[in-house]
Design a protein around this nucleic acid. Structure first.
Length: 386
DNA sequence: AATGAAGGCAACCGCAGAAGG
DNA sequence: GCCTTCTGCGGTTGCCTTCAT
């Protein structure tokens, strides 16, 4: 496939450039222009018979005090390497040093439009090379977006299940707590029942209704855990872009989880706005961004999915009560534009599917980003959990 | 002070498209 | 139109520095 790399030729040096090599290349290009990169290495060595500029001789002498006479041999590099060295390092108009906030904003804005077209982005940032911008993106801006819960490619809140990791972690913690409360009575699906049983036993003279409510809460939370698991399963095996998990995604997920976990509890998850470059502000810039910490867009749910999830949750397809079934996935959140244009008009969307089987309409409607049954809203346990 | 982890950056690699014969 | 060569681009790697333990 294709031709062999130009650097395959034996004897060509690779790796970091020495000051002498830089001197050869710089001086040759300053005098002759680069012309053909392929022939440049052969020609570049001879030009040093004429004195190099004073500034450069000084810098060279710092590195090689023995070089009283310029090296006359040609550059032992391939043309490609020379071009890269020139464009990324030796070019006189290169601006070095940290990126300014204006430059960061420009990169973010252009990246949201152009994607990874680093050369195109570089044309809008005088003195910056595509390589430098690319590195800056990969080491700073991309991580910042991920930490804030945004997909660095789309600049929108993440839509895969990793975005829900904070909830999953919280749920897992809750599950552990429940299990501990249940005095180790069985695992998995028995947890809620055991906890409920304990409540029943410990209720003593408490009112029967209270006990039932507590038991129902436990069962409801258990359903949350199960539905979260089903979300993972579907996301992990499903098609689309979210199916295959790369190491990068795993890293990103961990970062997102860590960041979102810190902000999730106090963040009104349903109030995010579409991300803009200025919204991804600097911490010191006075710009803030409501970080979504849950699913940003309604998952595409088919009727089959709903049915399958209802079965998974042990719900009757049509007659489940408010506590044993809350629908097939975690709540769609965050992106209001999508919610209004897609979710709400989709007869099979999350809330519609849920509303028929629970009190979603009252608890998860416009008044709350979460379709929790209104029943739970005043409960400090749930409130804290949210 | 030593050591391992993480971050940052320069450079390399492979591919695609343009240019020329 | 086909083939070869050259250039440019984006992704990735590996080294060096800094930070944390």
């Amino acid at each position: 496939m294709g031709r062999s790399p130009c650097c395959d030729e034996s004897g060509l040096k690779k790796g970091p450039w020495t000051p002498e090599e830089d001197e050869k290349l710089l001086h040759y290009i300053q005098k002759n222009g680069h012309g053909s990169w392929r022939t440049l290495p052969r020609l570049a060595g001879t030009v040093l018979q004429s004195p190099a500029p004073n500034f450069f001789r000084l810098s060279v002498c710092q590195h090689n005090t023995n070089s009283t006479a310029p090296e006359l041999r040609s550059l032992n590099r391939c043309g490609k390497s020379c071009r890269l060295r020139w464009t990324n390092y030796l070019r006189p108009d290169i601006k070095r040093g940290k990126f300014s906030q204006e430059e960061e904003q420009t990169i973010l804005h252009l990246h949201s439009i152009l994607g990874n077209k680093w050369s195109a982005i570089a044309t809008h940032l005088p003195g910056r090379t595509d390589n430098e911008i690319k590195n800056f993106w990969n080491t700073h801006l991309k991580k910042r977006l991920i930490q804030m819960g945004f997909d660095p490619m789309t600049h929108r809140p993440r839509t895969d299940f990793f975005a829900a990791l904070p909830q999953l972690i919280a749920l897992a913690t809750l599950r552990d707590q429940l299990a501990a409360t249940a005095c180790g009575g069985g695992g998995g699906g028995d947890t809620a029942a055991a906890a409920a049983a304990q409540i029943m036993q410990g209720a003593g003279g408490g009112g029967g209704a209270d006990v039932a409510i507590q038991a129902a809460k436990m069962q409801y939370l258990q359903c949350l855990l199960q539905s979260a698991a089903s979300t993972i399963a579907s996301a992990g095996s499903g098609g689309g872009g979210g199916g295959a998990m790369s190491a990068h995604d795993a890293d990103a997920a961990l970062a997102a989880a860590a960041a979102a976990a810190a902000t999730c509890s106090s963040s009104p998850a349903g109030s995010s706005v579409p991300i803009t470059p200025t919204a991804v502000g600097h911490s010191g810039g006075g710009q803030t961004q409501t970080t979504p910490c849950a699913f940003s867009e309604a998952p595409v749910i088919t009727s089959d999915d709903v049915e399958a999830n209802l079965r998974l949750l042990g719900c009757g397809a049509g007659g489940a009560d408010a506590f044993t079934c809350h629908g097939g996935s975690l709540p769609p959140l965050a992106d209001l534009s999508d919610v209004t244009t897609t979710t709400m008009t989709n007869p099979l969307d999350w809330c519609s599917a849920t509303a028929s089987a629970s009190s979603c309409g009252g608890g998860g409607g416009a008044s709350s980003p979460f379709p929790w049954p209104e029943f739970f809203h005043d409960d400090p346990f749930i409130t804290d959990f949210l």
